[in-house]
Amino acid sequence: MNFVQPIRDLEKLDKIKAYLKMKNERDYVMFLLGISTGLRISDILKLKKEDLLKTHIHIKETKTTKAKRVKIPGYIKKEIVPYAKKLNDGDYVIKSRQGGNKAIDRSTAYRILRDAAEHVNLTEIGTHTLRKTFGYHFYKQTKNIAMLQELFNHSDQHVTKRYIGINQDDLDDAMDKYRI
């Protein structure tokens, strides 16, 4: 399994958004949900039309089976609500093109993300990249690791910092400053 990083560079993040928006609205919405809510890809793929038309997403996490309530940030509502309204009631948001009402699978989500990452020359990419990107930028904006720890249901702040790559950033900065 590859080790993936958050997308730290806001310019590359914007280029991926533009690429996906131009290429496929469904994939763009998947990306937006991942980087804006911090949900795992397995939970994003379970979302249905009705979930996007509310102020909060209510789910039972696939990995932990814990009930979770996540606010949909207002800045993405204008992007995802018009998309959701085009769907039929009960449709999966990230619907497969294979027919029927089925969501894409994780491997398809990975291929979509890998293609977008190649477009901007990113290599350390995976489905967890979306969640890590959310966490990284949430932490950089708020400096509230305790809140992020709770959002992610992590047991320890050190786990959260390592997960979002803050520890690596600190190590990299220290190495840049090191002289002998």
Rank of each mutant, 00 (worst) to 15 (best):
138 F>P: 00
176 D>N: 14
86 K>L: 04
6 P>G: 00
83 Y>M: 08
85 K>A: 08
81 V>L: 11
139 Y>V: 08
98 Q>F: 08
82 P>Y: 08
117 A>D: 00
139 Y>H: 05
166 I>V: 13
101 N>W: 07
10 L>D: 12
100 G>Q: 04
91 D>K: 10
159 V>R: 10
112 I>Q: 00
57 I>P: 05
29 V>M: 09
143 K>Y: 04
51 D>G: 07
29 V>H: 02
38 G>K: 03
20 L>H: 03
155 S>Y: 09
170 D>L: 14
100 G>N: 02
25 E>I: 09
163 Y>H: 11
46 K>S: 15
77 K>P: 02
114 R>N: 11
63 K>Y: 07
136 Y>E: 03
108 T>I: 12
123 T>R: 11
176 D>P: 03
139 Y>F: 15
124 E>H: 06
143 K>S: 09
165 G>R: 05
40 R>P: 00
25 E>H: 09
125 I>Q: 00
138 F>N: 03
71 K>F: 11
162 R>D: 12
170 D>S: 11
176 D>I: 10
3 F>R: 11
140 K>P: 03
23 K>W: 06
162 R>I: 14
45 L>M: 01
9 D>T: 06
120 V>A: 07
6 P>H: 00
153 N>S: 13
74 G>E: 15
154 H>Q: 01
54 K>I: 04
35 I>H: 10
